[in-house]
Design a protein around this nucleic acid. Structure first.
Lengths: 352, 352
DNA sequence: CTGAAAGCGCTTACAG
DNA sequence: CTGAAAGCGCTTACAG
């Protein structure tokens, strides 16, 4: 009866604890106690207990999580701040893979995931309100830009945080692949095949992964005594068209590399497309190697030789560590994960 | 000083409204009023106003959104229940595309997105607690299974809801591509090319998109008078390996189709791979047509002829309608979006 | 076995 | 111009 009094059109009204209590004729605290099976409730008479449960069922009672969170001081939701991109923030197979890994882990711990998108530079305070307004117990930042003010800010605010694909010098809680060793594997692979004319398509330099892979490329080339040609060094933005463009810029030169190492798979796909479009072949004319091993790397023609990141493992480990810190205060720390070379059809010895 | 008294290790303590108020020596309601610029606050003296603002800044005050939501009765978060899959729930380029479109739209409206994953059948009540606990203002269900009890349940609970890729007979608020017409375009394309031996790799039949596409395939074939061969009809689960398996089952027969229509792109990729692995060519020996036009459809070899879904538009329209309903009560309704044939390299006339 | 009370942090009429 | 009070819906000691 009185459950109805508040119903306005267009506004759902869930039954409240007060309603079930009054329906049974007990106090709302008693109702709360039996509905939560809390220990204090072990001493509720069976009669009232069943009555309350019955009433709750009839009324379709469901505890308001907001009220509960206000009291408890936590929400069981974890925020994710995706890699900063201008637009279409969620696109890209690697981020998707990371997100999936995160979800895999939050699910087993009973957390929900909130994707924080309002990163719009024009209203940065929106982002902070969302993050710091108590709506999430912790946050996972994926691939922050190196100039991101977010990381130091969140650290100062003591919001539990872990960073995936970030610079270990940026903060303490970084989960990331061992880029140095991985790039070395890639270059070593090319040199082992006999390549001495090697180009590189780098990613956006304000992204840690892009910068460190480029640095590692330089270092490795020089360590192995392979001469560098600056015309064969181009920069893209980690997506397919930019890889295509970058490759086309390389292809404009008279002398061509026999191999190109791309800082991620998508740019490698673009590079392959550019090469094929010029009537050249992969790998016969130019070898292409990527980084990430996204699922489609095994589906392209030719299939892509690349560095596999244990993405699911990295994402789950980071998430699990974050939750461990939230719930039990165990320090998150940083972890580095090994990458591995996956040899497929896009790499082969140079022809001549 | 007293801001410190509550600090326990391992627990972030944001300054509270009470703290800034007491620091200035005003009531918390005055503080609230100036910090919110609410109209009642137009009559606060400039002196107190600046004092409060200053104090808030010094203390790093940030309103607790949970408390605010409890009072306001809304949260500005929208939940997404992704397509039901056994595992790795977020994978798949089409879902990713949908998610991206949703985010594009929530972002402009200042909503955050919560991904509800605890769909685990073993504890269905978790899902409902998450959904109905007042933590989200509305929910977007993507590609529910036809036996899903979720839809009727949410409807009964009056939680604002819109469904993407669902059965229009299932509920009132469905945003979906016009599958019938789209499939007809695909089949017409094959028949126009001269194909009369056409196979179909269908998706999981408890998914609306899969079922209706299969039905449309049958209807269209019979309308055009093209004979059906049951050996050329196989069922997959909308991913690459299952498309590969399905195609392999087709390839086991003596007589082969000259064209195969796949219910989504991923299965089409798998089909192509199976065909190539048998030493046959696409499209020379067998034409393959997909459905969705995921980004990679333009990147495979051969590139994939497929039906383009205006995914971003569908997702954004659904999201926008949901928010319109939440905020202003305008009915969501249902909408159907046209698909279009994208002709690429995987389709050609049959050889003989 | 059960209830009155305080509190989570905020907002909003309503008085002064 | 400013504050006391009630309330959002729930939980949890603490009394009886």
């Amino acid at each position: 009866m009185q459950t109805r009094e508040k119903r306005r059109p267009n506004e759902r009204s869930r039954a409240t604890l007060k309603e079930v209590a009054s329906k049974v004729g007990v106090s709302i605290c008693t109702a709360s106690v039996v509905l939560n099976n809390s220990n204090s409730g072990s001493r509720v008479s069976d009669a009232t207990r069943t009555a309350v449960i019955e009433a709750a069922r009839e009324l379709g009672y469901r505890a308001n999580q907001i009220a509960r969170s206000l009291h408890a001081g936590h929400t069981h939701v974890i925020g994710v701040v995706p890699a900063a991109t201008e637009t279409n923030i969620l696109l890209g197979p690697h981020l998707q893979h990371v997100l999936n890994g995160i979800v895999n882990e939050t699910e087993v711990h009973g957390y929900d995931l909130s994707i924080i998108t309002r990163c719009d530079q024009s209203r940065p305070s929106d982002l902070l309100d969302a993050l710091l307004g108590g709506r999430m117990d912790g946050v996972i930042v994926v691939a922050p830009r190196s100039n991101s003010r977010l990381i130091p800010l969140l650290r100062d605010e003591h919001l539990p945080m872990v960073v995936i694909d970030g610079d270990p010098e940026m903060c303490d809680n970084i989960y990331v692949i061992d880029n140095d060793t991985s790039v070395r594997r890639a270059i070593q692979h090319l040199v082992d095949l006999g390549h001495r004319n090697i180009g590189h398509i780098a990613g956006p330099q304000d992204l840690f992964a892009a910068r460190i892979r480029k640095d590692a490329f330089f270092r490795e080339m020089s360590r192995l005594g392979v001469p560098l040609k600056l015309e064969w060094l181009q920069v893209g933005v980690f997506n397919i068209p930019s890889g295509e463009d970058a490759m086309n810029r390389i292809l404009r030169h008279d002398e061509l590399p026999t191999a190109v190492f791309c800082a991620n798979d998508e740019m490698a796909f673009g590079a392959i497309r550019a090469i094929l479009a010029k009537g050249l072949r992969v790998p016969e004319d130019i070898t292409v190697v990527g980084f990430d091993d996204v699922p489609f790397a095994a589906m392209t023609t030719p299939t892509l030789t690349t560095i596999r990141q244990p993405v699911d493992e990295i994402a789950r480990a980071a998430t699990s560590a974050l939750i461990g810190y939230i719930e039990e205060g165990v320090p998150i720390g940083s972890r580095t994960f090994p990458g591995s070379l996956v040899e497929r059809m896009s790499s082969a010895p140079p022809r001549r």
